[in-house]
Design a protein around this nucleic acid. Structure first.
Lengths: 134, 134
DNA sequence: CCGCATCCGTTCGGATACTG
DNA sequence: CAGTATCCGAACGGATGCGG
């Protein structure tokens, strides 16, 4: 029985996939910053010079669950984009701020934001026109 | 029975969320271009001046399923970023190419790509260092 | 050749409860 | 205050088969 044919084809497909991916270094980073909350956290931290406490971030990004906020902060910390500083008082205080790397990422991200603000109406118009046609 | 308390709280949370989102126009666009395949399709179409056939795109982006490719192309078409041209022959031929809007989006996307290529090693180093510590 | 419909496993993300 | 652990529905995404 050729029970492996499906997985073999899948693996071959995956190999081609990886090959293409390897040639596109930006993909992994895009996957990171494309995350639903990363941009918001980056923007929030970028606005305040000396960082924000966990609770301040939580208030500023109302609508995000602690789970997602913590998850996002951990990922950013892991990638060296934000710095986490724990003050061992009672109660505990934790501050987050952008690293130099994080601030440098903010530049292209803001350019993207500028594009969005400049062309948003065109996109929305195109979308409505498309939906109107069916 | 206060069966609505949970949904009420969710709705309130959502309202605050939307309020924050309204102040950040880039979010909707980011959600669009952050899509797993959008950037690749954009890049592929950006490289060839006169567009690509569906099957050519499919080969270039080996690893993407037809479902995802079609889904992505529809979304991009809807937003006015790519143009779809059907040649009613037998068999059917369909060409896709970037619109002016799509080409303009390519600019900030490429800057982001440039950032990624410039800082990828730093990110990977930070990641390894983080994982080594625990 | 192009693309839609369906099925199905995997992942995402929110709510909740609990710890130091 | 700042998390961690768990549960669970919703959405994502791939494989396959059919239709124009």
């Amino acid at each position: 029985m050729a029970t492996t044919s499906a997985s073999q084809r899948a693996e071959q497909s995956r190999r081609e996939f990886d090959a293409f991916m390897a040639g596109c270094a930006s993909r992994q980073l895009l996957d990171r910053i494309a995350d639903k909350w990363v941009t918001l956290v980056l923007a929030a931290l970028g606005e305040s010079e000396d960082g924000l406490r966990y609770s301040e971030l939580s208030r500023r990004l109302a609508g995000v669950s602690q789970k997602m906020l913590t998850q996002t902060l951990r990922a950013l910390e892991r990638d060296g984009l934000v710095a986490r500083e724990v003050t061992a008082s009672v109660p505990v205080r934790v501050d987050y701020q952008l690293t130099a790397l994080g601030r440098s990422l903010l530049v292209p991200v803001m350019q993207l934001k500028a594009w969005a603000e400049a062309h948003m109406t065109e996109v929305l118009a195109a979308r409505e026109a498309y939906d109107a046609r069916g």
